[in-house]
């Protein structure tokens, strides 16, 4: 059963990250999801949208990011869509802390974090050139935590 759903369409920019985080936070809060789950979800969405802004749209501010949140029972689904360049997982170096230390790389942890924080991560690219990322996480509610 769908408990709640909400959508946000926003122009691609790093400044938009805080608006996106607030949007996700408010949605989780009004559905009384526990803080620990909220922190993971907000961070995963931030990492995913950061990648869209930086890599899919290559920091150009004319791209559109569409975010849809759906809470079904105790599973939150987050769908992210953009029309940027294709995501290639092979471009993402393995997030191994030792290797990073040696190479002192600044990035590349976003995907690693998303996979750690979410229960399901699924990327597809449509024939029309749309990137579609689905994230899912089983959440706990404040009343369950009592």
């Amino acid at each position: 059963m769908i408990k709640d759903s909400d959508q946000l369409t926003i122009q691609s920019s790093l400044e938009a990250l805080k608006i996106i985080r607030n949007f996700v936070y408010e949605f989780c809060k009004r559905n009384k999801i526990v803080e620990k789950s909220i922190n993971s979800i907000v961070l995963a969405v931030d990492e995913a949208t950061t990648n869209i802004v930086k890599h899919a749209y290559k920091n150009k501010e004319n791209g559109i990011i569409y975010i849809s949140l759906t809470l079904r029972d105790n599973v939150l689904s987050i769908e992210l869509e953009d029309l940027g360049v294709k995501f290639n997982e092979n471009d993402i170096p393995k997030a191994n802390i030792e290797d990073y230390y040696k190479e002192h790389k600044k990035g590349g942890w976003g995907v690693f974090l998303i996979k750690k924080l979410m229960d399901l991560v699924h990327y597809t690219r449509s024939d029309e050139g749309k990137n579609y990322l689905l994230l899912e996480k089983k959440v706990e509610f404040e009343e369950d935590a009592k």
Partner: peptide, 17 residues
């Protein structure tokens, strides 16, 4: 209040130097 991997990356970028 909050840190994402972009913030953590700053420390990684300079630690070796």
């Amino acid at each position: 209040n909050y840190i994402s991997s972009a913030g953590l990356g700053v420390f990684m970028a300079y630690i070796e130097d």
